[in-house]
Design a protein around this nucleic acid. Sequence first.
RNA 1: GGGAGAGUGGCGGAAUCAGGUAGACGCAACGGCCUUAGAAGCCGUCGGAGCAAUCCGUCCGGGUUCGAGUCCCGGCUCUCCCA
Length: 831
Amino acid sequence: MEDIRYQPAEIEPKWQKHWDDRHLFRAGERAGAPRAYVLEMFPYPSGAMHMGHVRVYTLGDVIARLARMRGFDVLHPMGYDAFGLPAENAAIKDGLHPAIRTPRNIESFREDLKRLGISYDWSREISTHEPEYYRWNQWFFLRMLERGIAYRRLSRVNWCPSCRTVLANEQVLEGLCWRCDSKVEDRRIPEWAFRITAYADELLQDLDKLDKWPERIVAMQRNWIGRSEGATVAFKVDGTAVEIPIFTTRLDTIFGCTYLVIAPEHKLVREFASAEKLAEIDAFAERIAQERKTDRAADTNKQGLFTGAFAVNPFTGQKVPIWVANFVVADYGTGAVMSVPAHDQRDFEFAKQYRLPIRPVIQPADGSPLLDPATAPAAFTDDGVVRDSGPFSSLESAAARQAMAELARKSGFGNPSITFRLRDWGVSRQRYWGTPIPIVYCEKCDPERRGIPVPDSDLPVRLPGPDEMDVKEVLSGTGEPPLAKISSFVNTTCPRCGGPAQRECETLDTFVDSSWYFARYLSPQDDRAPFERSEADGWLPVDTYVGGPEHAVLHLMYFRFWTKVMQELGLCEAREPVKRLVTQGIVNGPDGRKMSKRFGNVVSPRDIVEQYGADVTRLFILFAGPPQDDMKWSDDQVEGISRFLNRVWRHFQSVKKDLNDEERLAAETGVNPLRRKTHKTIRKLTHDIDNLQFNTCVSALMELSNAIGAVDSTQPAPFSALREAYEAFALLLSPLAPHFAAELWEQLGRADEIQLHSWPAWDEALTVDELVTYAVQVNGKLRGEVQVPATADDEEIKATARQAERVAAHLGDKPVRKAIVIKGRLVNFVV
RNA sequence: GGGAGAGUGGCGGAAUCAGGUAGACGCAACGGCCUUAGAAGCCGUCGGAGCAAUCCGUCCGGGUUCGAGUCCCGGCUCUCCCA
């Protein structure tokens, strides 16, 4: 007996080669067609793909293939986020230079992608570690420098001792490095930064336009930007000329201010504290910095120290003590706050702890009395009516805020102001495997080391390769940038005076690379510009972007910022990079835990594809649940999918001959249950696939295959209906399991490309059943079912329903008060 | 503490957008057929209790409604993000 099992190992490579040979997925080759740009977050090319990658790329591929069937000219590119720490860290271990390891990894990764049958336009492949790519990072850096968006600053940075680099705030999670979980330390060093805060308002406002982004991602960005409206008010330090600006959102409570808190590391502290006190304060600062590192909950534990100085409230002239405390940080707002314990919970707790006075000035709007400092268990933090506040008394909070800000402005001690939680983006990294920053230092022209930009004509500033360095020696440094050890790199000539000069040895954060790569795909070989304007205006913004939600406030914020800059540079019209964002959940191990070597529950895509084929792997991932939900790998479920395709295959092989017999096909006509099922399935998939409900798409295809299988055993096969069902099945399956679908299509005798065939349409008339099943309820409880002709009117339906056996029994001779008929669904008798 | 989301069979999930037969589809389990035997395949059962009629059942408690997994109010639990 001939083996009729379906053989993915044969048909999948066959179709992959076919697509490759015909360049079937090249973008820009369907003249006049509307365009769709479908993109997945590009991978860091580690040696082997993991299941998370399989999930993103499968999701993106379904969307891209569907768009193609809908007649779009689809751009679906792939590339590699190739700079970064893992390759560098691996090199320190085994001495293999990143520039050698990375291309190998890319090759292996590409192989895995190809075996999954993802429909990429491979002619546009890019990798960020190539000089042809990163020279444009440098070019952008110079443009930003010209516009004051890039600047040099001295800053307290988050330093990861294990990765030996600086981290952005977003890369520090609960005091730990996002990559290696080491405890992050504070250091003060000069670094390059991007003024993303200048775009804070726009980044916030434009969130409203992102109506096809998941709400939670938008909410996370909104929180991250953290806009607050309020006022800045200067408090004079008593007996000095020093002014401490404070930021508050509750200016209406300023008459209740009983002390000031300033960050212990705030530079103004040195201007008013006595030498003696200063030593105490420094020790305090040191201690809390230490605690913050060792204890994640340190911040909830309030600690403070009186500085010995007093400040004058500009509204009241009253003197209040100035404290330092662990919950005020120097780089948020102005680094100092006024404390109103009666109306701020944190201030309240602090005041109780250190026995500071509590002065209520806001009366609840419902008329209940002012808070009693002695007995109140908590601060009253709502708006209300202002009391005991001089000329502002009896104003509503909002009105008081406005009036007070106005007075402050007129009197010159304050202004309405807005602060953001968002910080500027520090981009300097003391690492090797990244984009060299195109800056030169010349002692003669630039004694202050502000940095001299490398001229565009000298770009790219190339990263020294394996021949120019001793890998282990250069990379295993102690905090100095590795590039500083490569004298052939460091020593150069000054672009201004032509004298000796040194290059900047830091490299750019790799989030720079991923901030604009989506645009580079538009003209990946362009050597005169990062990309072509005309291409950008034709394809941007990206229509659908698929990736993990872990990038909500990192990559997804940076690339929005970058897009706005690109637009200002005249590179594109778009001011937002992506219209629709799809975030996908995690693929966990079979035990429900995160896949990890530690748990020994890692499932390798390569093994699975080898064993079951790409189509089975793809279908399983799609079937397991909605894209945004986390899912669990299940070997049994994979088997189930494999059985499903085999069942279809076997049945198809047994009827194939008849399906291609034109005489028999011509003889058959009419509507029958299979045709109805076929058209209903088309309708369902058309709806579900648009809503990204791929799991129910797979279910519906299983149902259709069950209906196809049932025909055979019951009655003489209506071959025309069977052929119609198989054609529809192949088309509907095509975006999900493209190889299997293409093979079916070919064996149905079709010579055209199923990949480019139009998405099937259903005939609504063919979806209508002759008999409709109605559920019959009595008083809302199910009591029976009846079959009613589809053409019956309400009265006929009721009459039939009434006669159903169990229904009649329940109705008895009680009068029916009301009968509700829901067309096509149910009848409910109320007695 | 603030924000977002989720709780449905032994399991993954469907129905939730628009209130209308809860459990589609698949997995696991069980029974049967085929087979020397296994693998594969095929047929059947499959929320709980009950011989049945019937009753109970979508985290818990209320409410709206002829009818609530779905809507409203209150609570519990869990996940993620931010403090």
